[in-house]
Amino acid sequence: MRRFLLFCVLFAAAAAAEFWWLSAPAPVFAANSDAMERGGDASRGKLIFDAGGCASCHAAPGQEDRLALGGGYELKTAFGSFFAPNISSHPDDGIGRWTAADLVNAMQAGVSPSGEHYFPAFPYTTYAHAKPDDIRDLMFYLRTLAPVPGKSKPHTLGFPFNVRRGVGMWKLANFDKAPITADPAQTPEWNRGRYLADALGHCAECHSGRDFMGGIVSKFRYAGGADPEGKDWVPNITQHKDGLLAWSLKDISWTLKTGETPDGDSVGGEMNKVVKNMAQLPDADRDAIAVYIKSLPGLDGPPKPPKK
């Protein structure tokens, strides 16, 4: 019996060590990586900012300025509430002291400057596919924006989701860091659109069905699904009869620019913020996104809950 107990203790210790080892945060760059600071371009960074939709979550709610990045937006989910942090250039409350490498680690590895995992409510699962130089340019742009005082609220998550080390395990199952490489069989416009959608715009983060652990289910990628709060439904945007099959390229790019849908309606909810970001892009980039979205094979979305 004593031997069995000893075994149990040893096994638990081994499992804990395994967990600790497997769940360790793995940054991409050392924070003091000077190379990352060279050649940054704030004007190019603005395009990354707009395409990446940073303002959607990080602009302080209840005010009109989408460049006031004080955070505080509440993303309600089944796991609890996430509050977007302050990413303004404020040295104490925002990210004013960050290096470009810090931002790359945050956006591409999901690891904070202090070496903790970020929760994947922050779509680093998408940004990981971006070019590190684009993230560096974004850092240069963020430094030009006004500092906003005031820290955002801490997340309110239930156990065990509030254990940041647990995110390390989640990453093992759900986090593909591979950069997007150009597909030579496709046009440059398609490749540009794919980069904008899948490395920056993170369209699939909302327009996909997710499993019970919040991972995107690949057969439902872009096929729509419950919104994070689980109350509404995010539309299927694949070439499916319930998706965008009937939409022309122009319909897609026009909706991204104006929020007006081909049926004379306008987009709802969070998509309005996306449109405000997308409207900042040059027409050619919205057209490229349209080309990519129009190429998504039609998929049946996850089953919708019955209407009340």
Binding site: D227, K231, D232, W233, V234, P235, T258, G259, E260, T261, D265, S266, V267, G268, G269, E270, M271, N272, K273, V275, K304
Partner: peptide
Amino acid sequence: MGKNCGGCHESYRKKQQ
């Protein structure tokens, strides 16, 4: 004119299904 549509739908209407 179209901005009026989005301005209201963002706050007062559920997402389109």
